[in-house]
Design a protein around this nucleic acid. Structure first.
Lengths: 300, 300
DNA sequence: TAACAGTTTTTAATAATAAAGCGCAGACGG
DNA sequence: CCGTCTGCGCTTTATTATTAAAAACTGTTA
């Protein structure tokens, strides 16, 4: 019942490596300096030094530390496990919710999630607490969490919010200076769209990815931590639902390509009003698609 | 090292109360039913029943439970502590940050915060995890948290974001139907603004509260969980900084009243463009005020 | 056979604790 | 005698062990 000593183990091995670079008999640097080498606090260093002394790799008497022998592979310590990536927990969690179509108002068990994701409970709790800011999960009165889920209301509000953010982005893009990096990127996107449009009959599946890139590009002109935070969630959710709704996918995608091109045209003409209008039209379509995808899911 | 048994204690006392309403000798209802009365699970009820039997308040044999005597005050159990409100932790935390002007990039000690706020550590962690979504705090690489704080960048981005949300709200307000509750509220606000304007020389301090009400009203036309979540933080922050910047407070407030009235005028005339423009102007002023308040703070 | 009590399994909240971090006082070397 | 380094002890954090509470099962009786 205590935190893991991975930090110590890693530091220890790193110190062994360092000692390997020193000649036998050389004096070992001060604790502070070693701390900087291994990027840990002095406390950890001291523990490592204790062990090094114990194993007779170094002598240690006050500030007199000397390398006694060349360290071998046998001196190294195991660094137990490679704890599964905790970084993309968000990605994996949303993926799970969307892929398995977890219904709204499902009680979430921290213990169970902890097992399926291979992440300690307390980390999950923190993560869920974060998500609750987006209204995707909520605390239950008697403890525990529940997925507020992917209801129609949620989808509508998410779409509306997305529209607000993205119309703002389009407005800003229209006023971006000529040397802004968005212009070459838009030009490249236009080419990709035209390319895909030409072979839409066979490759219409490729659109989903292109769509994501397009919206990411548009939004990239807005440098705002709040908006960026949301964008991650928004794009993921739209992305998935796009993938699902298989009804008339080809036609939908062809239409969306046309709408994207209209936005690009208006932007490159620096016509803010037209761009706004085009974006508004496209977002309206997106919203409809998202809602219809939900409806099919409910029925299915 | 276990969770507290407050739930059990409360349930026990509530059952005592319930028994008080029964005549001596009456049969006590089933566990499930008792569970509904006290709003706890059967497990807790059984624990309570055990104690009731032990103290000879009831007899208990299988499903045969009878009230032996009228419960007295001596039978009740203490419910240890009144854990300080955990509900408005957000309010209190932001209050603390802003009031004591905690500088950016301050390391936050969960242990210390836990003490000053009288809240268990794990709750604080969850809370901080939630705040990190707003970019106000961040995890440090080597564990712990830090306040990313109230930098100039943060203020700029917050203002911009607020502007995006609020311009959208104004747009929607301009198109609200005649029977929408916003109209009488706006009319009332107009009166309050005029009233305050008349006695601005003495009462200019009262504006801060009026400002908050005004913006809250405008935003109330947008029903969107994401936006609402943000609004709480935004309004709190602006509110505080308004209170601080004492330079030319009277003039500033008088000007703001005029700007508010312009927005109300345009809205009531259902002139969306004019309303947008008026709002844009006001938001620009607000941003300037927020930034100058920061500047003074840095210097002072 | 349906409602109930007894039992077992799971889950979540909290305390305990090892690991890591921090800072000061004094020692040591130059 | 001054600056650097270490020894030491206190703080803080991350993680686990433990228990309260909830939920799920199972058998029994009215």
């Amino acid at each position: 019942m205590a935190r893991s000593d991975t930090r110590y183990r890693q530091a220890y091995n790193r110190l062994l490596d360092f000692c390997g670079t020193l000649p036998v008999g050389a004096s070992v640097p001060a604790e502070t300096e070693l701390g900087e080498i291994a990027n840990v606090s002095r406390t950890v260093i001291r523990r490592c030094l204790s062990r090094l002394e114990e194993r007779k790799v170094i002598s240690w008497d006050g500030r007199e530390k000397r390398l006694l022998r060349r360290p071998t592979d046998a001196d190294r310590v195991e660094l137990a496990d490679s704890r599964v990536s905790t970084a993309d927990l968000e990605q994996r969690f949303l993926d799970w919710v969307l892929r398995f179509d977890v219904p709204a108002d499902t009680p979430l068990s921290v213990a169970e999630l902890s097992r399926t994701f291979g992440v300690p409970q307390h980390e999950l709790k923190e993560f869920l607490a974060g998500l609750s800011r987006f209204g995707l999960v909520a605390r239950r009165r008697q403890g525990g969490w529940m997925l507020r889920g992917f209801t129609r209301d949620f989808a509508v509000e998410l779409s509306d919010f997305r529209a607000v953010l993205e119309l703002n982005a389009v407005e800003q893009a229209a006023e971006a200076p000529v040397d802004h990096p968005i212009w070459p990127r838009l030009e490249a996107l236009r080419a990709e769209h035209l390319d895909l449009a030409a072979r839409i009959d066979s490759d219409f599946h490729a659109f989903s990815k292109l769509d994501e890139t397009f919206h990411k590009t548009i939004n990239s002109v807005v440098r705002n931590r709040f908006i960026e935070e949301f964008q991650k969630v928004i794009s993921l959710i739209f992305h998935y639902h796009y993938l699902w709704d298989k009804t008339e996918e080809k036609d939908r995608n062809a239409a969306a390509i046309a709408e994207h091109l209209a936005i690009i045209d208006a932007l490159e003409a620096r016509d803010a009003d037209a761009a706004r209008e085009a974006a508004r039209r496209h977002l309206r379509t997106s919203k409809t698609t998202l809602l219809s995808s939900l409806r099919h899911h409910e029925l299915g």
